[in-house]
Structure formats: structure tokens, C-alpha cells
Simulated scan of single mutants.
Amino acid sequence: MPPESTVASPGSSLARIASPAAESGTAPAVSDAELRSLASGLDRLQTTGERSPGRLRAIAAGVVPPLVFVAVLLVAWQLYVAIAQPRPDIAPGPLDVLSAFGTAWDSGRLQLAVGTSLERGVVGFLIAIAVGTPLGLLLAEVRPLRRAVGPIVSGLQVLPSVAWVPAAIIWFGLSDATVYFVILMGAIPSIVNGLISGVDQVPPQLRRVGTVLGAGAFAQATRIVLPAALPGYLAGLKQGWAFSWRSLMAAEIIAMGGTIGFGLGAMLQQNRELADLAGVLATIILILAIGILVELVVFGPVERRMLRRRGLLVGGTA
């Protein structure tokens, strides 16, 4: 009789690995390559039969609707100004705001403010990720520590980060450390709670599979639990970025002078002191545009890729 043919598949790999453990009661030693093969095989099973759309079509589907909506708003705004003819210092039109953009660009204030705020926002957010990720994983895995520290983290998330600005000024003075401290206090609680929420939704069967495959506590946390908790973790990252960006603007508006550089918050406050409503609206629109751009360019593609790998995204819709 010819030898029985074998087909390498995630199910057969799992059965082959788990069978000795079920018979002998011991966990076999399994290489990292087999763990990765099993995970990638399951992902392929979930996404079989789906055809990903073209890149340009996917970008157009995400960008065109917001652009159309913004164009409609601008047309309605311009019609209101043309028909009602309000005072320009109370209700400036789109052309006045565009002129304020041009003035800020020609003076170099716009480039300086955007560069300063983006640098602070990105650096502060990366530090928040580096601190919040291990802290969130620790609180999610160690129940006594979570019961002790979890309510405090949730309370910090509810606390408006602008409340930290006066204390940060007293501690660090008018320096960039004040701004970064406010960013961290706004972003870290959201990242921690998002990761904890994602870990709570991990099916217990995955932990059992990790135990059968011989994964230790650290390997389970980093190779099984953290990837499985990715949807909640990504939601926490998105919320953490939103809080860090808001915290940054609050800190820049209040903490001005000293060694603190000129950011978008300082530009907004400067236009307010000059009673330049067109400049104020131009700065607000710019702050909003940067937030939307980060969502579309950074978090949007990452989220779509994650959903597609898990078989939760059909075609190009999200």
C-alpha cells in the first residue's frame, strides 16, 4: 500500500501538535516558525475568496466623499456671506480665511507653527505608546494590580488634560517639558484602557492553544494575547492620538513664552489677541485638517489592513 499523503494545513498542524499533549498530558516543544505558520494559515482561511480592490480605488473611496462634503460646506458658507453680507470682523468669508492662510504663509508663521506642533505631537504620542503599551499589558494580565490601579487610570482618562497645564507650568516652567507632560497625561490612559479592553475580548481558547503549543507567560502575552487584542489596542491608539493632539493644543494656548516654541496653539492665541477672526478660523481649520489627515493616512490604512487580515473587511468597504 502506498504511503498516505499528507497536506500541510493549520488544522492538521494543530492536530499533530495537540495530539501528543492530549495523550501524554505534556506540552510539546514547538518552534516559533510553527506558531507563525499556524497564525498565517488561519488568516488565509478567513480571507479566502476575497479580492482586494485596487489601491487607487480604495484611496478614492475614502477621500472623495469627505472632499465633496467640504466643498458643499464652502459653497454654502460663501452663499451666506454673499447674501447676508455680515461684518467681516464677525463673520469672515472663505476668501478672507484663505487670505489669512496666505498672510501666515508669507510671514513664515504657518510653516513654523505646523512644524513645531507636529514634532511635539508625534514625539509625545510615541512616548505615550512606549509607556502605555507595557503598562496596559501588565494591568490586563495581573488582576490584583488591575484592581488597584485600573480605577485611577480610568479617572485620569476622564480628567481634562488642560487641568494639568497649571501644575506642569509650576513643575517644569515655560519649557517643552510642560507640553510633553500634558500630552502624556492625556494619551497614556486612553492607550492603557484600549489595550485592557482588547485583552478582555480575547477568546480563552487562544490562551489554551498557546499553552498546548508550549508558550510561556511572556510568549503568550506578546505573541498571542497582544495580536488578538489588536482591535481594542488600535482603538485605544486612535483615541490616544486624539487626546494627545487636544492636550497639545490646550498646552500651547495656555503656556506661552519662555523657551516654548511657536506652535499652532500659540498662533491661535495670538490671532485671538489681535481680534483677527479670519486668522482664528484659519488656524482652527488647519488644526482640524491635520487631525483628519492623520486619521486618513495613518490609522485608516492600518485599520483596514487589520480587518482584511481577519476576514472582517469585504472588498474595499470598511
Rank of each mutant, 00 (worst) to 15 (best):
P2E: 10
E4G: 04
S9C: 09
G11A: 11
S12P: 05
A15R: 15
A18N: 04
S19W: 14
P20L: 04
T26D: 08
A29C: 12
S31C: 08
A33M: 06
R36I: 12
R36M: 04
Q46L: 12
T47D: 11
G49D: 09
G54Y: 13
L67P: 00
F69D: 07
L73M: 07
L73D: 07
W77F: 07
W77E: 03
V81M: 05
I83K: 02
I83T: 14
A84F: 12
P86C: 08
I90E: 10
A91I: 12
P92Q: 05
A100L: 12
A104N: 14
S107T: 13
L118Q: 03
R120I: 07
G121F: 09
V122H: 13
V122N: 09
G124L: 02
F125W: 13
A128N: 13
T133S: 14
L139Q: 10
L139D: 11
A140V: 14
R147D: 11
A148S: 10
A148R: 01
L156A: 14
L156M: 11
S161E: 01
S161G: 14
W164C: 06
A168Y: 00
I169F: 02
I170Y: 14
V179H: 01
Y180E: 01
Y180M: 02
M185G: 15
G186Q: 05
A187W: 06
I188K: 01
S190P: 00
S190I: 02
D200M: 08
Q201P: 02
V202R: 03
P203D: 12
R208S: 12
V209Q: 04
V209H: 02
T211V: 11
G214T: 06
A215T: 11
A217D: 08
L226C: 02
P227M: 09
A229D: 05
L230V: 09
L234D: 08
A235M: 04
Q239V: 06
G240T: 09
G240H: 06
R246E: 01
E252D: 04
I254S: 03
L264E: 00
M267L: 15
N271I: 04
R272C: 07
D276C: 12
T283F: 06
G291K: 07
V294L: 10
V298E: 07
V298L: 13
P301R: 07
M306W: 14
R310K: 05
R310V: 10
G311F: 01
A318K: 01
